[in-house]
């Protein structure tokens, strides 16, 4: 898969909700999804999809960092010296990640503990640097924000779907205690008495890959244009 460099022509006075801008949001949700089509950010998709609450917080963190970084870099695009642009991007992303991490530690300590190093690793999430290089550096803040929302949501829904499948079949309940809610039992006790067992394999990372694989399969069988020729 080629990393597309969409250098959109900067048209003056273009509405934020023009057709082209809307496509920036909807494209990454399906036909150009960062995880299933571009296969970026897979590492965190495997690691933190055991529980929905973690996946949710991770998604929100990534969306925040992505929007922030895209908009800030886009605003500075005319003054960022070419030779240090990667470093500048890294500093922007890293500071945003630190901000997220500190806020989580202060307001959602349990989740922060569960996510542990993965919040820090948002810095290395290819989706973010990829969008900065490919989009934010060449476009205005408005479209850059739309692009960030699209890609962030595209990342988030895959994470959440994988987490729902893994938590329900792996643990048998949905635990939202870290968000101040309760634990929801999915399968009634009678099921377990009849011999139903939670699938422990679901808790292990390989099953995340399998679930992502199934999503990719469904996606490509519905849209044949996504299938690559070999």
């Amino acid at each position: 898969m080629s990393t597309e460099t969409q250098a959109l022509q900067e048209v003056k006075k273009e509405s934020l909700f023009s057709k082209k801008n809307k496509k920036l949001v909807t494209d990454p949700l399906s036909d150009n999804n960062p995880i299933t089509i571009q296969v970026l950010g897979i590492c965190s998709a495997l690691a933190i999809t055991v529980q929905i609450q973690q996946a949710l917080m991770m998604s929100l963190s990534v969306i925040f960092v992505l929007i922030g970084a895209n908009v800030i870099v886009s605003m500075m695009r005319k003054i960022i010296p070419d030779r240090i642009r990667i470093i500048v991007q890294l500093i922007v992303v890293a500071s945003l990640v630190i901000i997220v991490n500190e806020f989580l530690k202060a307001y959602a300590p349990d989740i922060s503990e569960r996510l542990s190093v993965f919040v820090g690793l948002i810095i290395t999430n290819c989706i973010i640097m990829g969008r900065l290089e490919a989009f934010a550096l060449g476009n205005k803040p408005g479209p850059a924000m739309m692009d960030a929302i699209g890609n962030g949501m595209g990342y988030a829904w895959i994470l959440l779907v994988v987490a729902v499948v893994r938590e329900i079949f792996g643990s048998g309940y949905i635990n939202l205690e870290g968000l101040g809610l309760t634990k929801i039992q999915i399968f009634p006790q009678a099921f377990y008495e009849m011999g139903y067992m939670n699938n422990n394999l679901m808790i292990l990372p390989p099953m995340a890959l399998v679930v992502v694989g199934i999503i990719i399969w469904i996606q490509r069988s519905r849209n044949k244009a996504l299938i690559e020729d070999h």
């Binding site: 003054i79 960022i80 010296p81 240090i84 470093i87 500048v88 500093i91």
Partner: peptide
């Protein structure tokens, strides 16, 4: 470049 880096 240096000034930019410094301020940033």
């Amino acid at each position: 470049t240096f000034a930019f880096a410094g301020i940033m």
